[in-house]
Nucleic acid binder design. Structure first.
Length: 374
RNA sequence: GUGGAUUUAGCGUAGUUGGUUAACGCGUCAGUUUGUGGCACUGAAGACCGUGGGUUCGAGUCCCACAUUCCACC
């Protein structure tokens, strides 16, 4: 069968090694490297699809298997005509497998070889997701890119636990591939192995043998120090096939995104921009800005003087602070627009700089302005 | 005018038979947030307890006077 998801390499930055490419999907092309906004429950919180397209310039968004499985249920979404139609989004969608919830639900779940038993965080009911169930859900949702059902280990974890978990994740990946039947969806494998290089190597090579149309790095950016993150990132990315998309899961601070691109990553996603927006913080080219702080009470300038987004073109810090303090919905919306646009614009710059073989210089300038020390 | 009640942080309140640094919510101020379980979490500042006097080793707490606001009656 022809692959629904393919990767086309356009240019490699001669100095950094970063990749500029295109991912072809059933719902259109994705220019890479890319940042993908997260829409867990079939909505990027507070954003309409039109806003995501026109203001944020989002090319692809994420949705989550576990959440949509619980509510409203994948069958209902299927009945609605699939996720794209249900949520009125006609560009690519990537669904996470529920694997991250194996990690984040902590005490509310039990892992066995067969799969994971969850306690629903909504009503406490017993739920079960296995590789097969995850594939069934994601097929019903109809995403363009499906993720294999994996376990994301906490940081830190012992070598023994990480090894067992990684080997199980590999077996689960084989089961996902076996269970996956649709021809208009691409299934990505997820490399695990925690913070152990030999385990990462085994995970990568075992998964590559299974010939997925794309690969992700899971299990990093889970609370470890930045040096550990960079070390694992720079070790793992070169193990991934050059002719397929490379996805780093869960990364969303500007420095991590730039580092990811430099190491050869094509896709990243993160809840950070939308979450901190709801909590009153903006990302700007001069660093993080907590808009609700009193300093901005009478600050009638935009969030970021270098930003071209709808929020920055039309509203001031003082006004947004006022909206946040009065808990007006618009405050969160304006901040979400800005933060998402900040990251998609950052990645636009990254793509341009790769074409100019200039990403390393860009990084240095960006870091200096943002206030990063290294 | 008479009787009753009220007064504790910016606001709303708790504070037992008198016993260390007077508590809580909201607000204020600040920090956290990385394939979204909970949409928030963590911390800080802020009070001569209406005023004055008294009892007591010790008073937000008991007594007296005055003031305040509210309610009822005239």
């Amino acid at each position: 069968m022809t692959q629904p998801i393919t990767y086309e390499l356009l240019h490699v930055d001669k100095n950094s090694g970063a990749r500029r490419g295109v991912i072809h999907t059933p719902h259109g092309d994705i220019q890479t490297p890319i940042f993908m906004p997260v829409g867990t429950q079939a909505t990027v919180k507070a954003m309409t699809p039109d806003e995501l397209k026109d203001m944020v310039h989002a090319q692809i968004i994420l949705a989550n298997t576990y959440h949509l499985f619980l509510r409203p249920g994948h069958k209902l979404v299927q009945e609605a005509g699939g996720l794209h139609k249900f949520m009125n989004w006609d560009r690519p969608i990537l669904t996470d497998s529920g694997g991250f919830q194996v990690f984040s639900l902590g005490a509310l779940r039990k892992i066995t070889e067969d799969g994971v038993e969850f306690r629903s965080h909504i009503d406490g009911s017993r739920q079960f997701i296995s590789p097969e169930v995850s594939m069934e859900i994601q097929e019903a949702l109809g995403s363009d890119i499906m993720m294999a059902f994996d376990e994301c280990c906490p940081y830190p974890s012992t070598y023994e636990y990480t090894k067992k978990s990684m080997e199980r994740t590999t077996r689960w990946a084989a089961r996902c591939k076996e269970a996956h039947k649709t021809e208009n969806q691409g299934l990505f494998g997820i490399i695990q192995g925690g913070f152990f290089e030999d385990l990462r190597k085994i995970s990568a090579s075992d998964l590559i043998q299974m010939d997925f149309p794309g690969y992700a790095i899971g299990g990093i950016s889970v609370g470890e120090p930045k040096e550990e993150f960079l070390k694992m990132l720079k070790f793992t990315t070169p193990l991934m096939p050059e002719n397929k998309p490379r996805y780093l899961m869960g990364v969303g601070t500007p420095d991590y995104l730039i580092e990811a691109a430099i190491s050869g990553i094509d896709m990243c996603d993160c809840v950070l921009p939308t979450r901190i927006a709801r909590h009153g913080t903006a990302m700007t080219s001069h660093g993080k800005l907590v808009v609700r702080n009193a300093t901005y009470e009478r600050d009638f300038t935009p969030l970021d003087d270098e930003c071209d987004c709808y929020t920055c073109k039309n509203y001031t810090r003082a006004y947004i602070r006022h909206l946040l303090n009065t808990k007006e919905i618009l405050g969160v919306r304006l901040l979400s627009i800005h933060n998402l646009r900040f990251l998609t614009k950052l990645m636009e710059s990254v793509r341009i700089e790769i074409e100019r073989d200039n990403l390393l210089n860009f990084k240095n300038d960006f870091y200096k302005k943002y206030g990063y020390t290294k």
